[in-house]
Nucleic acid binder design. Structure first.
Lengths: 159, 159
DNA sequence: CTCGTTGCAAAGGATTTGCACAAGT
DNA sequence: ACTTGTGCAAATCCTTTGCAACGAG
């Protein structure tokens, strides 16, 4: 192992992916690299959004990864600890790169997604651990509620 | 209408279903009463669980409500403010009677659901309101994590 | 009697799975 | 060459929808 470059900031680090794959005897494929890059690029990536993005990125003549490959790859990447997924209420799960955990807050009216500091839940997490023996996974938490804009709109539309 | 009885006070009335339906010109059907009863009886009712329960409850000779009716009824009951639903991670939404809001905690390993005091999140909710103008709906929140049993199991299975 | 409701069945959308071929090592 | 990965298509799962008969008011 000669190349031990420190992780770069603006680039997608191919290093951890290749390493982890090889250490498991798995193949480093173009598709896997592209899916991981797409998740990192899209803030809150649904599987479908990833498929669409990859389809757009695919150079003319090249075949974009199939949806089934994207699903399989996301599962693999998650098992490798490189991405996470969260369910934000209805429907599609969203994936994000597992760099810095953050808390998701979803507006039930408009679907807007905000990110917040996971530390917000530390106190609640400790209480749950003490009371129920339940370890809360802060990174997977999605809080739902109403954003400021929708709250005002709802108030003014009130008959 | 002429008489405005303004029975808008208690959201926790024993039989607000008939009232609310009639005030909207909707019919009070046996199916609707049964679905509401099933949601109240089942702690965390998925649509499918409701269908199964109603099927079991149906007296011999009577036809249990169809799944599509259950879905339509749940939607209606929610619009009437009589039930709530929450997405607990993967798949099925769970419905519960809209009596006392509570916080859901879901084990990602075994799917166990625990209920906790919504007040646990009060501090976090206030911070979110202040920081993002986001009003958290505590009753709809589902926290995910690992229950004590699964945590121990995972630790002991650890190689 | 007049509509809202329901059951049935078929349609839809999202995700998964089986397989034979293509690709990484 | 040997195995793992991928694309394609069919299979599932869950939920929604169209429609004619049914039942509440």
């Amino acid at each position: 192992m000669a190349h031990q470059h420190a992780a770069r900031r603006g680039d997608t680090d191919p290093a951890p992916l290749a390493e982890r794959l090889r250490s498991r005897g798995l193949r480093v494929t173009h598709q896997r690299e592209r899916v991981l890059a797409a998740v990192a690029a899209l803030e809150h990536a649904t599987p479908e959004a990833i498929v669409v993005r990859l389809r757009g990125e695919a150079a003319a003549g090249s075949t974009p990864p199939d949806a089934s490959t994207v699903y399989r790859t996301l599962e693999l990447l998650e098992s490798l600890g490189l991405v996470w997924h969260t369910h934000l209420g209805t429907g599609a799960p969203v994936y994000h790169a597992a760099e810095h955990p953050h808390l998701h807050v979803v507006c039930q009216s408009c679907g807007a997604i905000a990110s917040a500091d996971p530390a917000l839940l530390d106190a609640a997490a400790e209480r749950l651990a003490a009371d129920l023996g339940f370890t809360v996974d802060v990174g997977h938490v999605a809080l739902s509620g109403t954003c400021a804009a929708c709250r005002e709109r709802a108030a003014s539309e009130q008959t």
